[in-house]
Amino acid sequence: MNAAITSSQRRALRALSIAYFVQATGALSVAGSLPAISAAWQLTDAQSARLLSIFGLTFALAAPLVQVIFGHLRRRQLVLTGIGLFGLGAFAFALSPAYGALVASRILMGVGAGFIGPVLVALGSELVHEQQRGRAIGMVLLGVSMASLAGIPLAAWIAGMWGAKALFLLVGLVSLLSGLNVLLTVPDESVGSRIRLTEMAGVLSEGKYLTAFLVVFFITSGVYSFYSFIAPLIRDTYAGGTHAVSAALAVLGVAGVLGNLWVTRAATRFTSEKLLLTGMILLITDTALIALLPKALGVLLAALVFWAFATDLLWPSQQRRIVELSSTRHRGIALALTSAFMFGGIGFGSAVASWIYPVAGFYGLAGMSVAFIVLALVSLQLSEKLRKPVATAEPCQSEA
């Protein structure tokens, strides 16, 4: 049987990747555009950062609930619904008159993303033969890497040049165009399965799953407690402006894509656990070095290369580990919950950052980031212990 990916399948996978690119850029552009958002609506940086938290926490709740309420519908229909809600939320953000409307628009974007994120990977994997599923998933997830490489730095530059309102009008327009691309190129053949709340609760109650989800929760909390304030950090600690922020985000994107490409090759030689462990140790070490090294912009950019490489080592490895850990029946639920815990971590980490930064500044954020990654390491060790089945029962010993 010819298992090669056909040209029509490539177009469909590319459309899904673009949809992921738009969602990731629109979701995370708040971090790089913090000063522009604060200026447009006369907000503090902490208030602007909470808009990232609100999106993340909304996504964390919406992703599993969408699977429970709408999971039985066709997956393309879910993606298109999510893109529509996400695009409308972006338009509403740009036109918001006050902070309350900004919050509501980010909630709408978070709900839309809850329809998109968990479904894209499953939809992409079902478009191709089983032998090509790993490659198809990689092609879809490339959109997230490209958002880091080009989307988020470009968003920061647009916000700096033309303002945050122009940025989110553009996000809304591109979202709707990406939905049209999906409609025209992705076949409407993938049908989901209805998931019951009791079944989801059953997955969460299993120690091997819960600890695995906590790994991604603490990783994203650690990464985004630092990343969400990258623009204010560069402004306040490194005396950098809009171009410096865009340069830093571009460095993060390039190094992140290199990390993604490397982990794709390394996955054939190393277990997901070893790659996760390597990435977390590198992230802890590099964050500590950023705190200790001289506060020069060139030094920061060099350190961010390793920081981004480490983070992009973690995301694919975590997804792979969840797939390996879960049964076929629970795989869809597990991936949805992984996305929920991931964005819950983004929301929690950026919320903590919005409280810590005004009080403890740069060093407070660095310390908090390291603490969260240490908790992720502990969760990984617990998950590994709970994952391993008991091979043989120990013989009973008589009590003395």
Rank of each mutant, 00 (worst) to 15 (best):
L142E: 10
A400M: 09
L261V: 15
E394G: 07
E130F: 02
G253D: 06
V305D: 04
W157C: 00
V299D: 11
R10V: 00
R265I: 02
Q381N: 11
L180P: 00
T220E: 14
R76I: 00
A49N: 11
L16A: 10
R320W: 08
L289K: 04
I356M: 06
G332Q: 06
K388Y: 07
N260W: 00
K208A: 13
G138W: 10
V191I: 15
F229K: 10
Q23W: 09
L180R: 01
V182H: 06
P118E: 10
L51E: 03
L380I: 01
A248L: 09
G134P: 06
I346N: 05
A98W: 13
V140G: 04
V352D: 07
P316W: 12
L176T: 01
A291N: 12
G179C: 11
L293M: 15
L380H: 00
A39I: 09
L142R: 02
I284T: 00
V144Y: 14
S228V: 09
P232G: 01
L52M: 14
R74V: 09
P294S: 13
L337I: 14
Q9V: 07
G256P: 03
L127N: 01
L300R: 05
T81N: 03
L167R: 14
P395I: 12
A113K: 01
S190T: 15
L204I: 09
F213P: 07
W162Y: 14
Q132N: 12
R194V: 10
E324Y: 08
S190R: 10
F341T: 10
D312N: 15
A147E: 06
L282P: 03
A4S: 13
I322P: 00
R76F: 01
H243S: 13
G143Y: 00
G332D: 08
A122W: 01
M146G: 08
L95Q: 14
F348L: 15
V263A: 04
L197D: 02
L197W: 12
I195T: 11
A303I: 08
L233C: 02
M1E: 09
G117D: 12
T268Y: 04
A308T: 06
T242W: 02
L65M: 11
S8C: 02
T311E: 11
I18W: 00
T44Y: 12
A27W: 08
W262M: 15
R76K: 15
L154R: 09
A104R: 10
V171G: 03
S272Q: 12
V254W: 05
G349R: 03
Q9L: 04
L176P: 04
S369N: 08
L275K: 07
L142G: 11
S148N: 12
E394T: 14
A391E: 14
T211L: 13
S246W: 04
T242N: 06
L85R: 08
L314P: 10
F93C: 05
S148H: 03
F21Q: 01
I230C: 00
L28T: 04
